[in-house]
Design a binder for these strands. Structure first.
Lengths: 336, 336
DNA sequence: TTGAAAGCGCTAACAG
DNA sequence: CTGTTAGCGCTTTCAA
């Protein structure tokens, strides 16, 4: 691995000139031929700047971490792609982290930043990461942007227009003629879950309807949990004819539970989910969803983080463009 | 962020003593009280060793990259967990990389190692990464271990017992009474796909049967592609009564295609897939699979890589323990 | 237009 | 048992 001084020697210049040329330092004025000699030497020796040397000198690593509860969730494919593209454009390296158990996870995170391996984080909170734990992280000098989650003390976040998404899902059901629409939502503690419920409520209200507590469950997004919620709602004496499920993975679980309990979809009950992923086309029936622009969340979160590293103030963004889009498949139909 | 010299000053010792105590250098012999003073100072100042300084000095980063075609594939959850556990145990940081387009991807990889950001890679080849491209990577000083893929010039790999897995899947079908068993396999260029086909052939042979080319497709693991293969096989004049699908994601696609063409599973045809993932329990019918120990692949790959970094010779491992295990769900039944 | 030199934080060889 | 010191590769101020 060639070093800078080898390049300099080969080009017959000092290391400082070599450094400035290779970094495209705009304030430097070198003779074109000197410049060319340096460039040529770098090419000849296939030079890459040593990362540790640079990081040590500059006291920043030019690396960012994207930390999500479970990177193998297909939903994150888009988020990752967006974050990755943005990082690349800004010449940052993106590391993907994971934190099954967040209490332990946060320590890994803390280390990552304290040791200087990364300059900042894009983090998706899990519902069990308390505001306090988050504050501790931030207090620890961590530059951080939250995605698909927020904290009361706003300090950088990018979320989707969950209200619009849930509203669109609900309106779709309403337009099909449903009047008894239930909600399988996220946990109450979640800001995002509350926003989705709000969209649901707004759509109902605009149709002259009201939320009915017996048709609402707030247990979370895990497939098994949503499955339980679906079974429970449908066993109500007079249950809904349609269900908004606040997350596509939950909806997949719900579909299975409904079938197992002999409830036909969409014959007996229609189901629409928020968020889209490839599996939704392979459930039975294929699942109608509201696709949200997760790519853009990843992209903008990284840009925001980099801006903040450069001194910009923390900002809280709601990505409303492109807007949520209905992906019509076969799990919704007019009421029986 | 406290530095080593701050710790040393606070403890009233030199940096070298502080360094050695903090690193648990076994050759150092310090007075217990000196030692304790250093430890206390580190606690007081909440010290973490700066990563760049250490990496520069030691010329290694103590970081590893796990690079897979698409980290959001649920199949990789186990692989990641295993790799992550092994890294943690050895005090390495694990970075997850991704490479949608490998030709570009390999450049990212090259940079990662050339810049010294990571000491080595655990890499899953995509089928379109040529042996030559791989050699280039390795030639570039990259310490690398392949997972779920290999290269003719063996230089470190960990794979599953694909032969046993495919054999188990096929035998399950055979034991149900099927005599006409087809295969939806991977692409021919893939070593792993060949091994799975071999398991299939061995099981057939042991039952006195022979592979029949009209019942075999070798198009790859993508859901759409396997879907096409399924439709095509079942439209053969006298088609099989059972199908081994060499990958669970492909099987999910196949199930959808079969249903769309009016083929009943398992009524008309049984389906068993290799590998397991949560979604398999949520297809219709729930998919019978052969679960393979992907966790162990991740775990052993990282250990192997770390051993190699320490000078051990490259090794090629087949993980046969725990053995493949049949997960019986509802997509298989006796032939019609 | 170019070069010399300091120093980022750390480890380890060597000296006391 | 502990301290001094060189130097990893890089950027940048300052001087020429």
């Amino acid at each position: 691995m060639a070093t800078l001084s080898e390049i300099a020697a080969r080009a017959g210049v000092s290391v400082s000139v070599a450094s400035r040329v290779l970094n495209g330092d705009p304030t430097v004025r070198t003779r074109p031929e000197t410049r060319e000699r340096v460039l040529q030497a770098a090419r000849d020796l296939d030079y890459s700047a040593n990362y540790a040397g640079r990081a040590l000198r500059l006291a920043r690593s030019k690396a960012l971490a994207l930390v999500v509860p479970n990177p193998s969730n297909p939903l994150f494919a888009d988020l990752l792609a967006g974050a990755s593209d943005a990082s690349g454009e800004c010449d940052y390296t993106l590391l993907v982290g994971h934190s099954q158990h967040f209490t332990e996870g946060s320590d890994v995170i803390r280390r990552l930043v304290r040791e200087g391996r990364v300059d900042g984080f894009v983090l998706q909170r899990t519902d069990d990461l308390t505001d306090q734990a988050l504050e501790n992280l931030v207090a620890n000098d961590a530059r951080i942007v939250l995605v698909a989650s927020r904290t009361p003390r706003r300090r950088g976040s990018v979320i989707l227009d969950d209200v619009a998404g849930a509203r669109l899902a609900t309106e779709h059901l309403l337009s099909l003629g449903h009047r008894r629409v239930g909600l399988i939502g996220g946990v109450e503690a979640s800001d995002i879950a509350r926003r989705r419920e709000q969209g649901y409520v707004v759509a109902l209200r605009d149709a002259g309807l009201r939320r009915r507590e017996t048709w609402v469950r707030r247990l979370g997004y895990a497939p098994e949990v949503a499955a339980e919620a679906a079974t429970s709602i449908m066993s109500e004496p007079s249950g809904p004819t349609a269900l908004v499920v606040a997350n596509v993975n939950g909806a997949i679980g719900a579909l299975t539970a409904l079938r197992q309990t002999g409830v036909e979809v969409p014959g007996d009950v229609s189901v629409v989910a928020i968020h889209d992923q490839w599996m939704a086309a392979h459930t039975w029936p294929p699942l109608t969803t509201v696709k949200m622009a997760f790519y853009d969340v990843g992209y903008r979160a990284v840009r925001l983080l980099i801006d903040q590293l450069a001194g910009a103030p923390a900002d809280d963004i709601v990505v409303g463009d492109p807007p949520p889009r209905l992906v019509l498949r076969a799990s919704t139909a007019p009421p029986p």
